[in-house]
Design a protein around this nucleic acid. Structure first.
Lengths: 328, 328
DNA sequence: GTGAAAGCGCTAACAT
DNA sequence: ATGTTAGCGCTTTCAC
């Protein structure tokens, strides 16, 4: 029996000697060589997942969601970590370009050429968490501006006016949107934070730590701080602990992204939460749809809602200033 | 100029017209087709990384370490998540088998056939965190027994005798070694915990939560608990909080694996820590050595030390029993 | 419904 | 040092 017949059978075509084929496959433990198949058909049965930091629990959860969807398909998942570097990302993308059928990407910056070129070259690309300025990609985002605004409103409603923010880089979507959304909501309440209350950090723990330290060292420290992502929140909390600043008595803190242990902190952390694993699964399903051939559909831009979880880390501001001992 | 010359140039051989070749490559943006190369040479330039749970910060860190090493090579990394299921793992392994040059594996159980067969078939396999009963693989482990023993000794030295353990599954290496190491150290101190003090759970948060609840509901609850991994520790802590058990006054808790926020808990968590990212990087380097051809070297079994970090969650046991309100 | 044969892009063996 | 050629394992015409 010819290899062509087996190939057709595997391809789902109608064949006569089904039994014999199945038997032979079993007996030999036959598995089509992916490399040969790729060479012939141009399909790699592989997807790239490119994230800035796999140790960020948010991206780990996204990865899990993506993985769980592709597990039931013939597609396997390449993982790449860019360390928030657009340069690394570029290199990785070029390398992976010729070995995958699609890319799920959380880009380091909104101004990038490579994904645009690859998209134009026909590569399906789905953005998660972040997107580019050109809105030509399928994307799974959350309402960053709305979430940040909810954080701002929460603080305002509690009576804060000296409100600071530790922001992520303004070059990527969540960084920029949370920054803008937060400030817009404050402005609507008639609050315009002084320049020194606006720390633009890097989404890293060390960035959050140092930014919080700078805020505490201000002549007039804020009474409330919004921290734009989970790992910077961890850094901020450590800075607070190092300076023995009591939360929420001395300062209120609200973070974007929930923390696994957030509920166990003392006080438990008030946060803006979002459905990370679902975002990953959704991105994977959008990718599957593109791969199934709907290649010229208009881009699907999905924005999921965030969720304010009020716990104990934000309270009314204390009457006076911060106690003397907090001043540098 | 022939394709063969270019191929040789790319292969690092000596050529005459280097300039023209480089120019042509630049001009065309030429990249060798990985599929064709694989088909011809049998090399895939891909490694599989198979872990039980990518959202476990330990494995996320391992993955980061692995990824960082392979980033500087031509190898790319497949990621697969098995959810601690040997069945899923088996399926994944078979699927990946024919598309990778090596596998970095944290197996769900110590009794598994598939990795043995694949190894015999010539597939380089490096174990991280866990290994199989047959010790024929390169592996990067930590001194689980020693770490667990250190935890036990710490509790004993503080004066505890009613000591419980929330263990992982005994079918995998860290589960078993931590269990054995902990009990051995207790035995050496003349302590043999009653059966109901030994909870065998599943390395999941829910498992830690429920196990801790059962311990608290005992007629005579333990005064100290050792929790065998990070995510179960989170569960345990939540159970403690739910029951309003005060730590360390009512109960002492020590966990295996540090937590990002461990230092911020109240009290800060005493833990057995280990170098996750380094373990990943090391595993990747062992893999690279195998790939470089040293295929018949004896297996390299590396055991890294753990590190007891004493913070505030373990103290002397209180005089009497747990207060009445803790009893179911 | 099936077999024969071409060809995907590369590399290694051989010839020059 | 370089060109020519065969063949890796598959899928897809093209004949039958």
């Amino acid at each position: 029996m010819s290899t062509a017949t087996v190939s057709r059978f595997l391809g789902g075509e109608r064949v006569r000697e089904v039994e014999r084929i199945v038997q032979a496959i079993e007996a030999l433990g036959y598995r089509p060589a992916v490399a040969a198949r790729s060479l012939r058909s141009g399909i790699h049965y592989a997807i790239a997942m490119v994230v800035p930091d796999i140790t960020n629990p948010y991206f780990a959860a996204v990865a899990k969601g993506v993985e769980s969807v592709f597990r039931d398909t013939h597609y396997r998942l390449f993982l790449a970590n860019t360390d928030e570097s657009a340069t690394t990302e570029d290199a990785v993308l070029h390398d992976l370009m010729h070995r995958v059928d699609g890319i799920i990407l959380a880009p380091a910056a909104e101004q990038e050429e490579t994904p645009l070129r690859m998209r134009r070259a026909g590569m399906p690309i789905v953005m998660v968490d972040r997107e580019l300025s050109e809105k030509i990609f399928d994307s799974v985002l959350v309402d960053n501006a709305g979430g940040a605004a909810a954080a701002a409103s929460h603080l305002v409603e509690l009576g804060h006016t000296a409100i600071a923010m530790i922001s992520g880089p303004l070059v990527n979507t969540p960084g920029r949107m949370r920054y803008d959304g937060f400030l817009a909501a404050l402005a609507k309440a008639g609050i315009e934070p002084p320049r020194e209350y606006l720390e633009v950090a890097n989404f890293r723990e060390s960035g959050g730590y140092e930014a919080m330290l700078r805020l505490l060292d201000l002549p007039k420290p804020p009474t409330a701080v919004f921290c734009a992502n989970n790992v910077m929140t961890v850094g901020s909390l450590k800075a607070l602990a190092a300076r023995r600043v009591r939360m929420p008595m001395d300062i209120s803190l609200i973070g974007f992204d929930d923390l696994d242990l957030g509920v166990l902190l003392n006080p438990p952390l008030t946060v803006i939460a979002r459905p990370a694993e679902e975002q990953g699964a959704l991105a994977a399903r959008l990718m599957l749809r593109r791969l199934a051939g709907e290649d010229d559909r208009a881009p699907d831009r999905i924005m999921m809602p965030t969720n304010l979880i009020v716990r104990g880390s934000c309270k009314k501001p204390r009457a006076g200033q911060l106690p003397q001992r907090l001043q540098a």
